[in-house]
Amino acid sequence: MRHFQTVNVSASAFFLNGEINCPTIRPSMWRRRDLDCLAEPAALLSAADAIRTRRSIRAFTDQPVSRDMVTRILDLAARAPSGSNIQPWKVYVITGKARTDLSGALIAADMASDGVIHEEEYTYYPTQWRDPYLSRRRKVGWDLYGALGIEKGDKDRMGAQLRRNYLFFGAPIGLFFTLERELNLGSWVDMGMFMENVMVAARGFGLDTCPQQAFCKYHAIIRRHLDIPDGEILVSGMALGHADGDAPENRFETERAPAAEFAQFKGF
């Protein structure tokens, strides 16, 4: 039996369906007590703490995450805004043998020398790099490699680290996010807000994530394993689980520019 599930989450499903014994509440009625139905109160972080402590984790423990917990995260994340409330996001959740089989196929494809070219279906990075984007990219790369003891020019170890993406960095849960192809750029904005909600909600429950666009190169393989229709485009993958606190790659923090560098204020 395959161990993955397609979830097309309604933005109001969590609060209206009552599937996990949550009360039916209107947004104007939300209080901290209404969130207590999502998890044990002690497990919840404030919104500020969840955002502040969200990091792209690159080493997870094998501690399992239940289907119920994943559903709670997705139901909560579906409160994300979307243009005219169209809620365009689709999610494929994978674990167990299905996850292991997919990882094996992806690593085999990445290491193959059969001449097959795998390309992502959309361009993620700039076609021409310039600062400040280039310097930021270089810094985070070398900070990661430095934490792992990988020296500049060590292509074998760099490649091995890249392939850890396809193992979900050891996380027990993988998520894949898709959109229907005919949807336009606005729906990609909606998807970004939904994915951020997934990551922040996971932190609220004491879990961690790593968004992984690296999967998109192998969309054809993923499509076959997860039965994703041709009418959907793979936007990103994501690892979900418990962070390995002893892993050196989880100990460095990426920098963020302060608001004074990217925001303009008028009329204050």
Rank of each mutant, 00 (worst) to 15 (best):
G159W: 08
A160Y: 00
A160D: 13
N165K: 13
N165G: 12
Y166E: 11
L167N: 10
L167H: 06
G170R: 01
G170K: 05
P172R: 03
F177V: 04
T178Q: 07
T178D: 11
L179A: 09
E180K: 14
R181K: 15
R181V: 10
R181H: 12
E182P: 06
L183A: 06
N184M: 14
N184H: 14
L185G: 10
G186S: 13
S187Y: 10
W188Y: 14
D190K: 04
F194E: 10
M195Y: 05
M195T: 09
E196L: 12
E196C: 12
N197V: 00
M199Q: 11
M199R: 01
V200I: 15
A201D: 05
A201G: 01
A201C: 12
A202Y: 02
R203D: 00
G204Q: 01
F205C: 10
G206D: 03
G206Y: 03
T209F: 01
T209C: 09
Q213Y: 14
A214I: 06
F215R: 07
C216D: 07
I222A: 00
H225K: 13
L226A: 04
D227C: 12
D227G: 10
P229D: 05
P229W: 01
D230G: 15
I233P: 04
I233F: 04
L234Q: 04
S236F: 09
L240R: 02
G241L: 02
G241H: 03
D244S: 03
G245C: 08
D246V: 03
P248A: 14
